[in-house]
Design a protein around this nucleic acid. Structure first.
Lengths: 252, 252
DNA sequence: GAGTGGTCTAGACCACAGC
DNA sequence: CTGTGGTCTAGACCACTCC
C-alpha cells in the first residue's frame, strides 16, 4: 500500500489481489480472506475493500456469496458453436442444432417457444427486405441444458412465408423451421451471421443467470433463399463465458 | 422509491435512471443531474447514488467526467469486419486489410509492430501443430486509426517458415505476411476463426482506451496451407463497442 | 471560486449460511 | 450463535473543469 503514489487505495488492493489470483496463490474456487480480514491486512476501511472486490467482480474474476465468502471464479466449460450446425446433413438427423449439440454432450436439453405476430420495425424490415409494418412471425425461444438457460433466440420471418405451416406452431418437427422452409420450396442459398458483444441488461443477466462481469455475445443470423430473398432473421444472445463461435472458410 | 420492497435503494435509483435514459428523457450525450441533486431527488445518501451510477457505468450506459458530470453514452460508430478482408483480391491492392479498411473510411491508419522470437507454449504448439518449445516468430501489432488504438493483434508462425523472409521484419510489404507466405510456396487453403468475448484486463482497458462496461471481442484465426498444415495463428483483441464481425457462407 | 465527480472513513443494521 | 457479504448513512477532503 503506497498512500502517496496517486493510485487510489481500492485499486491498489484490487491489483494486489488480482496478482495473487493470477499467480495461483488463490486457486480457482478458493476463498479470499473475508472483507474484515482484508480491512486489517491492508489497513483501509471496509467500503474501500468492497470497492476493490467490486472491481474484481466486474472483471469476472471472483464471485461473492452472501454469508459465505468471496471465491475465485473457476473457468467455465466452453461450448463451441460451429457453422456446420446449420448444414442440411445435420438437420436430417435431429430436431435442430441446439438439441443435437446438447444431447451429444450428455445434457438434457429443453427449449420453450413463444409464438407471436407483430409488425416489422425499421431494423427488422431492413434486414428482411420488407416494408416496415409488414406482419412477421416471431418465434421467441429460451434454450436450456439441464434446466439452466444457455441461450436466447428470437427468430422472425415474413408471415407470408409461414402462414398455414407448422412454423407458426410450437413444434416445427424434425430439422426445425429451416427444413420446413425448404420443403415449401424455399431452398436456402446462404447464411450471414453478424457477431458482437456487450454487457447484458439486468433482465438478460437474470434470465441467463449470468455472473457478474460476464458479457453477452449477440449474433444476428439471416438465412437467404437461393435467389437472395431473406427468409429468416434470428437474434441470438449467448453468455460469453460459455460459448465461442467458430467459422471456417476456404481461402479466396 | 419503495423502501419496503426488498429491492436495494441503489438498484431502484439505477432502474429509474435507466428507464429515463431508454425512454429518451435523457438523450444521448445529455448530462444527468449531479450526484448532489440526485441525493435530494431520491432522498438517499451520496454513496447510494454513486452505487446506482456505478451500476449504469458497468452496463456501459453512462460516462462520468470528473469536474463536469455524468453523461448518457452516445452510440459508437460500428465497424464491420467481413471475412472477405482476407481474400487474395483484397490483398493484391494494399498492405493489409486493416490499412485498406481504415483508409477507405477516411481514417489515418497507423500500426506499430514489435517482432520477437519465443518458444511455443502448450496452447500455441497445439494450434500450430508443432512441439511445445519449438521457436515461433511473433508479430505483436497495435493498430490505430487517427491515433486511437482500435485493435491488438498477436500473430505467431513457426520460425521455420519465416526465416530469411521479410515476415521477420517490421514491413512485410504489399499484401502483408499472407502474401509473402504464398509467394514462398505456402498457398493458403482455408481459415478458421474462433470468436469469444470477455471483460478486459486493466492493461487492455488502458491500451485500448476502453470506456467502462465495454467488453473485448477476442478472435483467434488460424491460416492453414492447402495440405492442412497450420501456417499462422493470430490472436486479435477488439473493443466490443466498435466492432461487429460478419461471416457469410453458402448453405450446406 | 463554485460545482463536479473520485476517494475514503467509521460506523450501523440487515439477510443469509453454517455450525 | 457467529461470521459472512449486502446495504446505507453522514460526513470529509481531494482533483478537476469551467467561469
Amino acid at each position: 500500500m503506497d498512500r502517496s503514489s496517486g493510485v487510489p487505495a481500492f485499486r491498489q488492493v484490487a491489483a494486489d489481489l488480482r496478482e495473487r489470483i493470477v499467480a495461483g496463490e488463490y486457486e480457482p474456487g478458493a476463498r479470499l480472506p473475508s472483507e474484515r480480514e482484508l480491512v486489517d491486512n491492508y489497513g483501509v476501511s471496509r467500503p474501500t475493500i468492497r470497492d476493490a472486490i467490486d472491481l474484481l467482480r466486474a472483471e469476472g474474476r471472483v464471485d461473492a456469496v452472501r454469508g459465505v465468502g468471496v471465491f475465485v471464479r473457476p473457468p467455465t466449460q466452453i461450448e463451441r458453436l460451429a457453422r456446420s450446425r446449420l448444414s442440411r446433413a445435420a438437420r436430417a438427423e435431429n430436431k435442430g442444432a441446439f438439441m443435437a449439440d446438447a444431447a451429444a454432450k450428455g445434457f438434457t436439453p429443453s427449449s420453450s417457444v413463444k409464438i407471436r405476430f407483430e409488425p416489422a420495425d425499421e431494423r427488422v424490415a431492413g434486414l428482411l427486405g420488407i416494408e416496415p409494418g409488414t406482419e412477421v412471425t416471431v418465434r421467441d425461444r429460451v434454450m436450456r441444458a439441464n434446466g439452466l438457460v444457455v441461450q436466447l433466440a428470437v427468430s422472425r420471418l415474413p408471415r407470408e412465408l409461414t402462414r398455414g405451416t407448422v412454423i407458426e406452431e410450437v413444434d416445427t418437427g424434425p430439422g426445425g423451421a429451416y427444413a420446413r422452409l425448404e420443403e415449401a420450396g424455399h431452398a436456402i442459398g446462404h447464411y450471414v451471421e453478424d457477431v458482437g458483444s456487450r454487457m447484458p441488461s439486468p433482465e438478460e443477466a437474470s434470465t441467463l443467470q449470468l455472473a457478474e462481469g460476464v458479457p453477452v455475445i449477440t449474433v444476428t443470423r439471416i438465412a437467404y433463399r437461393q435467389d437472395g430473398l431473406p427468409l429468416e432473421m434470428n437474434d441470438m444472445t449467448l453468455p460469453a463465458d460459455r460459448y465461442r463461435l467458430t467459422y471456417e472458410w476456404a481461402a479466396e
